[in-house]
Write a protein that binds this DNA or RNA. Structure first.
Length: 1129
RNA sequence: GCCCAGGUGGCGGAAUGGUAUACGCGUGACACUUAAAAUGUCAUGACCGUAAGGUCUUGUGGGUUCGAGUCCCACCCUGGGUACCA
């Protein structure tokens, strides 16, 4: 018998697989494609940790399994080789990061090759190679060209000692990971990718993906969509008198606007740019929405003057969809350069275009005419307003053409029903009313807030602004408030706070009031105070909130601390609650436990006595009135309602009430709430009921809300928003992706800063911008690349003048956000990939990834995919069809493996001591693939034994077949064949379901059954070897070869099973009495109900059990097919 | 705090509402051996019992069901994520 020598076998096959390129994936194969993506590792100096081979083994099993099912499998390996740890390590040891990375990569490659993973090594990629990062740079330039890569000021973590920016992960407890110095936050101009533009699609397209549900949820949470309303709170300030520049050079338009301003009753003097000496300002119209365009235009002008600026922009909406003004103009002009045309020519072309739109839709089309307004305040804040007028688009040309009003004659205003040219002056003003109103609103001092609970507007008792809100700045600058110093100091102090420090203050909110200014609640018309507090973030929504302390926890705490009014406006629906205040003393969960009760509802006891109107007293209410001392609540025990009274001497008393009173009591409770306990303006200072108010965030019937009282709060959202002239709005939490890194070991950002032309991308035919070798990689207050004149100094590709390269590098997440698109065509030197190849292989059919990467990497990869889809590179919109997660391998002590704990298991040592096959199989056997499981050093012995036994068994069968004249299958028991078929089914099902642990256990069970006396026929043995092959490929390939085959087992068909043979197996039927097992019998699978019941009643053990119970005839006999008979007595 | 996952022998873990503890580790006994290792055989949830057998047991307490680890309600604990997102 050949002894099992795994070292030799594994070395032999690893070498052959590599040299013969056995697993090379063919692009034009006729087999169905299957693309399996492996998380490409970050090659650290420490080498692979156990988590890598766990995930990789699972994928290798699947890859080999899929090949045996006739698929052409694309299965690859690469290196995410750029990154900070390598750079830091290189600095520490005084070497070049490139050399360090190469060594690490070599070591990783050696290790994964040792495990025998079936990669196509011809497709190996490395993000730090110029061949790869050329395309990372190219990708960045495509983003830039589409306006999706831009620069803005952003907060960064700065280590003053290391003179560098740190990633969030490098900041531990507010200190630098390496030197322990307290980090600072600095504002720096950085590159961003505009992932926010894709927020809605990134959210919507999650539907239908075969991903773990928690992962989908985390993506959703990260995108953080909130639907709510934007509401405007006017201030008790007069509209300001001021000079205002209107962003137009068109006399007609200007005069018209002047008229509207006068109509709005504003004491504002409008000026044309020419009036203040500005001849030309840059009117770029390439924004996305009307509002964005308008602001862009306004900002462009504002750059040239200190005066406040006003701009507008217009567009049609048909069926609620904006006809993008840029698109419209582009379509209308038909590729002709705008600059070569006169105003009249442009107008004419626009008319023709609109006419064609109307004609295309059948002549007359209902539409909306939107006019976006933007006001740049003296503080340089942008305030927006939008006027909407319903119109009918028509294809009839009408009236005289007015070049200043290009669209007149093409629509009929709904307000007047006449063509604009036929309107009287009064009619025209009527038609323009929404615009006048919008203008009026725009210049009436007001604060916009975003809320998800517009239904609680009547309960908004104060406003809170973020310290960075422009209005706060304006108040300080214009000395418009009574406590300037206090507010300025607060703003100043919070600007020095790090986000971390803000977080620590969650429990203790700070803030100051803006004294001398009040806002007006648009619903109640009452004046409410305005506060500045850093619990409101400047970066979300409008940077301002309405505070509804009765229905928002943060507002509640703030109101409590500063004695602000709390007004309840939503009734709490009947629901259990956990804790409450009673008699000034908090009842804890432990108290409830001691009382052995369950709280169902708590009725606030007001001023400690319940007062019931005399004429309404019923017996039960009388009972309550008499009994009540401190408080009471009711709860349900079993099916009864119990009233519990708490008295001032801490005595509790319980009275059981019948069922029918329950509704009555509840009704009573809600009446109390309305009549007595919920005062419309509950002031902390004046009212000691305060503590009995239970803030809640639920939906219910509105109270104290004027005409909306009694309305359901969900419904009231839209109604109240409409009532106060707000608009429904969707907000996202996701922020744009910051990609600048001020470090060396990454992809150089392919941009050139020219003093004349601004930011210019490196021409694509000059890519890659190669990362230069430097003398010193240490960042010294500036990015390392900035210190290399040879790298930095460059000629501007546009003007040819002196310019500088961008000295920063890209976040490594950019490298990994597209690597799966490179494997289909890894060596393409002329394009990022060949479209046909990507169309063939993508999307990824299976991606196995650590649960720790479920947010960033996936979000970025999906974003890049959608972007390239939009650019026309492929038709799919999601990169990863199916995804599964790896659970961690923990140390033997059940905690995460770490050097400091000394519980790290080194894969090299395990392979040296046992074998690669044993390690692969043991990793799969440890526990469920998705769960974190501890590495038990002894457990692998079981796998080693199994492999040896299996080897010996196979060799035994083969020898017997060779020496004994009778064919092996004559000695075989039928049950062995049946067991084999049962196991073929089980292993296949389990591999499909990622249940590798139970697949292996099924194989062990089979071997236990086969040994020692149930040999399989030789062809059956082949099936068995194939079955184990994905788990232990070296050994199985060797066995296959010992059987005299020259081929590779991976391309042999997966064994089929015969369901009829599985059905022939004996089954065990259980006999129960009242659900307790009394007897088991082994029967043929063909047993029917009658026979089974008969056998059960005939069973001695069942008879004995019946006799003991003194029962002769059972009440019922239940039969579960092929499972059990339960006799109910 | 909120969200997610999970609590089953000495350990890792198995179980479409149907024999709880498969499979493996460990442990014990035995066989082989001069001996040890390796290998093989048997046993191995707890308690009571000489035994036959019985009782209990899947974090806790209830519920639904002929029957619950599995479904429902409440609670406790552990792990992970998140953090003032209005």
């Amino acid at each position: 018998m050949t002894p099992y020598d795994p070292k030799k076998i594994e070395e032999k096959w690893n070498k052959k697989w590599l040299e013969e390129k056995v697993f090379k994936a063919t692009d034009d194969s006729k087999k169905p494609k299957y693309y399996q993506l492996e998380t490409f590792p970050y090659p650290s100096a420490a080498g692979l940790h156990m988590g890598h081979p766990k995930g990789y083994t699972a994928e290798d099993i699947r890859a080999r399994y899929m090949r045996m099912h006739g698929n052409e499998v694309l299965y690859t390996m690469g290196w995410d080789a750029f990154g900070l740890p390598t750079e830091n390590y290189a600095i520490k040891v005084g070497r070049n990061p490139k050399d360090v990375a190469r060594e690490n990569t070599d070591n990783f490659r050696r290790q994964v090759q040792m495990f025998g993973f079936s990669y196509d090594w011809d497709r190996e990629i490395d993000t730090s190679s110029p061949e790869y990062y050329k395309w990372t740079q190219w990708l960045f330039i495509q983003f830039f060209k589409k306006g999706l890569a831009y620069r803005k000021e952003a907060k960064v973590n700065w280590c003053p000692k290391d003179q560098t920016v740190l990633a969030n992960e490098q900041v531990i407890d507010g200190k630098c990971e390496r030197c322990g110095t307290e980090i600072e936050e600095r504002m720096m101009e950085q590159w961003f990718l505009k992932i926010t533009d894709y927020a809605e699609r990134l959210l919507a397209d999650l539907k239908g993906l075969d991903w773990p549900a928690p992962t989908i949820k985390r993506q959703e949470d990260w995108i953080g969509k909130s639907e709510g309303a934007e509401l405007s709170f006017t201030l008790n300030w007069p509209a300001p008198k001021m000079d205002l520049v209107f962003a137009t050079n068109n006399q007609g338009k200007f005069k018209r606007m002047q008229k509207l301003f006068a109509e709005a009753g504003l004491s504002i003097t409008l000026k044309m740019p020419a009036d203040i000496g500005i001849k030309d300002f840059d009117v770029v119209e390439d924004g996305k929405t009307l509002a964005e365009n308008t602001e862009k235009k306004a900002r462009a002008l504002a750059k040239l003057t200190d005066l406040p600026v006003f701009a507008d922009d217009t567009g049609f909406f048909i069926d609620g969809t904006e006809i993008n003004p840029v698109t419209v103009k582009r379509n209308a002009l038909g590729g002709v350069d705008e600059k070569s045309l006169t105003m009249e020519q442009i107008a004419e072309k626009m008319q023709v275009y609109y006419k064609s739109v109307a004609t295309a839709r059948g002549g007359r089309v209902d539409a909306e005419w939107h006019q976006a307004l933007c006001f740049i305040t003296p503080e340089r804040a942008a305030v927006h307003e939008e006027a909407v007028r319903p119109v009918v688009l028509t294809d009839e040309m009408h009236g005289t053409f007015d070049p200043s009003l290009p669209l007149r004659g093409l629509y009929i205003p709904k307000a007047t029903g006449k063509y604009p040219s036929e309107e009287t002056e009064e009619e025209e003003l009527l038609e323009l009313k929404p615009l006048t109103d919008a203008i009026k609103k725009l210049f009436t001092p007001a604060i916009k807030i975003f809320t998800t609970r517009p239904d609680t507007l009547f309960g908004a008792t104060y406003l809170v602004l973020a310290p960075e809100h422009p209005f706060v700045n304006g108040c300080i600058k214009q000395k418009a408030i009574a406590n300037i110093d206090e507010v300025a100091a607060y703003v100043e102090a919070s600007s020095h706070k790090t986000d971390r420090m803000r977080q620590e203050e969650v429990k203790d909110k700070t803030g100051v009031e803006l004294k001398g200014v009040k806002a007006i609640n648009p619903a109640t018309k009452e004046e409410i105070p305005i506060w500045v507090a850093d619990y409101v973030l400047g970066s979300y929504g409008t940077g301002a909130i309405m505070a509804v302390p009765a229905h928002d926890e943060r507002d509640f705490e703030f109101a409590k601390k500063f004695g602000l009014p709390i007004k309840q406006v939503v009734l709490k629906p009947n629901a259990p609650i956990k804790s409450y205040l009673m008699g000034g003393e908090k009842i804890t969960d432990q108290d409830l436990k001691n009382l052995d009760i369950r709280i169902v509802e708590v009725i606030p006891s007001g001023d400690r006595k319940i007062i019931i109107p005399e004429n309404k007293i019923t017996d039960y209410e009388k009972l309550i009135t008499e009994k009540i001392d401190v408080g009471f609540w009711n709860e349900y025990i079993g099916k009864e309602t119990v009233f519990i009274f708490k008295h001032s001497d801490n005595r509790t008393e319980r009275i059981v009430l019948s069922n029918e009173t329950e509704a009555h009591i509840n009704d009573l409770a809600s009446q109390f709430a309305k009549q007595k306990f919920i005062s419309p303006w509950l002031m902390l200072a004046e009212n000691k009921w305060y503590e009995d108010i239970i803030i809640h965030l639920e939906y219910g019937a509105l109270i104290n809300s004027g005409q909306f009282s009694d309305m359901d709060s969900e419904k009231a959202k839209a109604e109240i928003t409409k009532f106060v002239g707000g608009k429904m709005k969707t907000q996202y939490k996701i922020r744009d992706w910051s990609v600048s890194r001020q470090r060396y070991w990454g992809v150089p950002i392919p941009m050139i800063h020219c003093p004349k032309d601004g930011i210019v991308p490196v021409p694509e035919n000059e890519l890659p911008v190669v990362l230069p070798d430097l003398e010193n990689y240490r960042p010294q207050g500036m990015p390392p690349l900035a210190s290399s004149p040879a790298f930095i100094n460059v000629k501007c590709p546009q003007c040819g003048g002196d310019a500088k390269r961008d000295p920063e590098t890209l976040d490594t997440f950019v490298d990994s956000s597209w690597y799966f698109l490179r494997y289909p065509d890894p060596h393409n030197a002329t394009a990022i990939f060949d479209k046909a190849k990507v169309a063939h292989w993508m999307p990824v059919d299976l991606y196995v990834i650590g649960a720790e990467h479920t947010v960033m990497h996936l979000l970025y990869s999906r974003f890049v995919t959608k972007f390239l889809h939009d650019e026309g590179y492929f038709s799919f919109i999601e990169p990863f069809k199916k995804m599964r997660h790896i659970g961690l391998i923990m140390g033997a002590d059940g905690t995460k493996m770490s050097k400091s704990k000394g519980n790290v298991v080194n894969p090299d040592e395990i392979v040296a001591e046992f074998s690669a096959d044993a390690m692969r199989m043991y990793l799969m056997f440890l526990g469920p693939f998705y769960d974190a499981t501890p590495w038990d050093a002894k457990g692998i012995l079981g796998i080693e034994r199994f492999l040896k036994r299996f080897w010996n068994y196979c060799n035994g069968v083969l020898e017997q077949a060779a020496t004994v004249s009778t064919p092996a299958n004559t000695t075989q028991k039928p049950s062995a064949t049946n067991a084999l078929h049962r196991t073929i089914k089980k292993v296949g099902d389990d591999i499909e379901a990622f249940k590798f642990n139970t697949a292996i256990s099924a194989l062990m069970i089979l071997l236990n059954e086969l040994e020692p006396s149930a040999p399989l026929a030789k062809d059956e043995l082949v099936s068995l070897v194939k079955l184990i092959h994905p788990f232990a490929p070296h050994m199985c390939q060797e066995l296959w070869s010992l059987m005299g085959n020259a081929s590779y087992l991976d391309f042999e068909p997966w064994p089929a099973y015969d369901p009829a043979l599985i059905a022939q197996e004996k089954i065990t039927i259980v006999f129960q009495v009242n659900g307790k097992t009394k007897d088991t019998v082994s029967v043929d699978a063909a047993i029917d109900e009658g026979a089974a019941k008969e056998m059960a009643l005939a069973s001695e053990k069942v008879k004995a059990a019946l006799a003991t119970a003194g029962v002769s005839t059972p009440k019922r006999v239940i039969y579960v097919d092929k499972k059990l008979v339960n006799i109910v007595i």
